[in-house]
Write a protein that binds this DNA or RNA. Structure first.
Lengths: 208, 208
DNA sequence: AACTTTGTTAACCAAATGGTTAAACTATAT
DNA sequence: ATATAGTTTAACCATTTGGTTAACAAAGTT
């Protein structure tokens, strides 16, 4: 039974470490707290993952490998541009509702440790903007959307989707609503954001 | 001369603390490092600000009191809506270029400590959305902009302006540009973001 | 059954860290 | 000049923290 046990504790640790690291960050997390959450002895953390740094990196990579496919939905996917924007906002917001701390965690740790991005970038499947750039250029040439730099459009899409989660505590206070109401606002954004973007870039035909 | 001296060291400490806290966060900051940066003995930190927590709160409040007036430019100011959006994006982006770590710091610490928002909210001059809400409703009634919930529009404006800074390391990697090129992209956003928003909400007359 | 490998723990350790103390120093007021 | 109040420091201290060690337990191998 030991292999089963081993795998279990190893993933137990990872699950516990995810929770703690994502809520408190690398600097705020305590190995003891992770051990407690995983219901094991602190020394076991070091048995499976040699150091706090390595455990953190395992958590970080795991988090990023969940985030990357989401980003690829805008970047590498050749469905129609508008359709894509609609699908992305819908699916991204659902994704973050499932993993509330994840995007904030990734972005925060990248800010504290910008060199870290290089490690990610060198790995396969790191999202790239190339395809998206072409698609937007084409749509402009075809007169479907007004001229806009693909990079700017991409940044806009990402900003409108990610920030409402990262800025939640601040936005809740400014908009002056409680958690439930804010949840409804977020829920509405599943369609609202896509409409907002498409409205901005779409060239209206006589039909519409 | 002692009162002058006192004020100097006290503000020296605050300046040093700002830098360290804003870059490393509450958990990652070290009192010794702050003392070194301020070129004083560590005990002096405790002489002027009793504890790390209090020093942190002084820094945080100071940071927020810089940010609040920026937010009030969208929320409490009764110039024309479009003009306002243009001015805000311009001035906000300039503001962050001057204080690169500030918005990230505020948002990050609010995430780690959401109860903290209550302290801010209870203070005077805490930005409120009321005025903005009316203005947007009016603009909709007058047929100037298409129907949109004021809260959603506000969240969009803030997201498009703040996120490009908070997400910089990630966005730089995704868009695949170096710091200089990213700086140019940000510079372009001073007008680009306002255009993007106004394009999305403005109802076109026959004139245009 | 003897032995080897893997998993787990309690006890321990050195370094880092926030905070304190008492003494020294500086400048102004008397 | 001297008392006084505010400022600054060196030396300490207790606790926390990441990490190690040695012993033990359980399972697999021969």
């Amino acid at each position: 039974m030991n292999k089963v046990k081993a795998e279990n504790t190893e993933t137990e640790i990872l699950i516990a470490a995810k929770e703690i690291f994502q809520q408190k960050g690398m600097a705020g997390a305590r190995m003891q707290e992770i051990a407690d959450k995983a219901k094991i002895n602190k020394a076991l953390l070091h048995y499976y993952y040699r150091s706090k740094q390595l455990l953190f990196e395992a958590v970080f990579k795991s988090a990023f490998s969940l985030l990357a496919p989401q980003l690829n939905k805008v970047l590498n996917d050749d469905t129609d541009l508008f359709e894509k924007i609609r699908k992305f906002t819908e699916s991204y917001i659902s994704f973050v509702i499932k993993h509330p701390y994840l995007p904030n965690f990734v972005i925060q740790e990248l800010n504290k440790n910008p060199e870290f991005v290089l490690k990610l970038q060198s790995e396969k499947h790191f999202p790239s903007i190339e395809k998206f750039r072409l698609q937007v250029s084409d749509a402009i040439k075809q007169g479907i959307i007004r001229p806009i730099e693909p990079e700017q459009l991409f940044i806009n899409i990402i900003s409108l989707n990610i920030f409402p989660f990262i800025g939640q505590p601040l936005l809740m206070a400014l908009v002056n609503v409680d958690k439930d109401s804010y949840g409804k606002i977020i829920e509405n954004r599943k369609t609202e954001v896509a409409d907002f973007i498409i409205n901005s870039i779409k060239i209206k035909t006589n039909e519409n």
